[in-house]
Amino acid sequence: MILILGGTGYIGSHANKLFNWRGYKTVVFDNLIYGHSSFVKWGDFFLVILPIRSFRCPYFSA
């Protein structure tokens, strides 16, 4: 079984398709911000919404 994070976008949906063709079972986690649940044609889909914390990179401080 393969877990695909962000599997409803262009790259994730094609990766899901490839793994399915190769005989793997897939599980897709996505928050649907940049993708569509209709793109998950193989495997199981779970809508996962995680809280976003603000992140500051010390190398690019203003």
Rank of each mutant, 00 (worst) to 15 (best):
28 V>E: 03
26 T>R: 11
32 L>H: 04
56 R>S: 08
8 T>V: 01
14 H>K: 14
5 L>N: 11
41 K>W: 07
17 K>T: 13
55 F>V: 11
31 N>C: 09
58 P>H: 11
55 F>G: 04
62 A>I: 05
22 R>N: 07
30 D>W: 00
16 N>Q: 08
16 N>F: 01
10 Y>E: 15
2 I>W: 06
46 F>R: 05
54 S>F: 05
19 F>K: 05
40 V>P: 01
60 F>K: 08
48 V>H: 13
45 F>I: 10
42 W>G: 01
57 C>Y: 12
29 F>W: 15
43 G>V: 13
4 I>Q: 10
9 G>V: 03
56 R>K: 13
19 F>E: 03
20 N>Q: 10
25 K>E: 15
19 F>R: 01
21 W>A: 12
20 N>M: 01
46 F>I: 02
20 N>Y: 14
52 I>H: 11
6 G>I: 14
34 Y>C: 12
17 K>D: 07
33 I>N: 00
60 F>L: 11
8 T>W: 04
14 H>W: 11
6 G>W: 15
61 S>H: 07
1 M>K: 05
7 G>F: 09
1 M>A: 08
38 S>W: 02
56 R>M: 03
27 V>C: 12
22 R>S: 09
50 L>C: 06
27 V>K: 14
23 G>L: 02
11 I>D: 11
49 I>L: 10
32 L>S: 07
32 L>A: 02
12 G>S: 10
19 F>A: 09
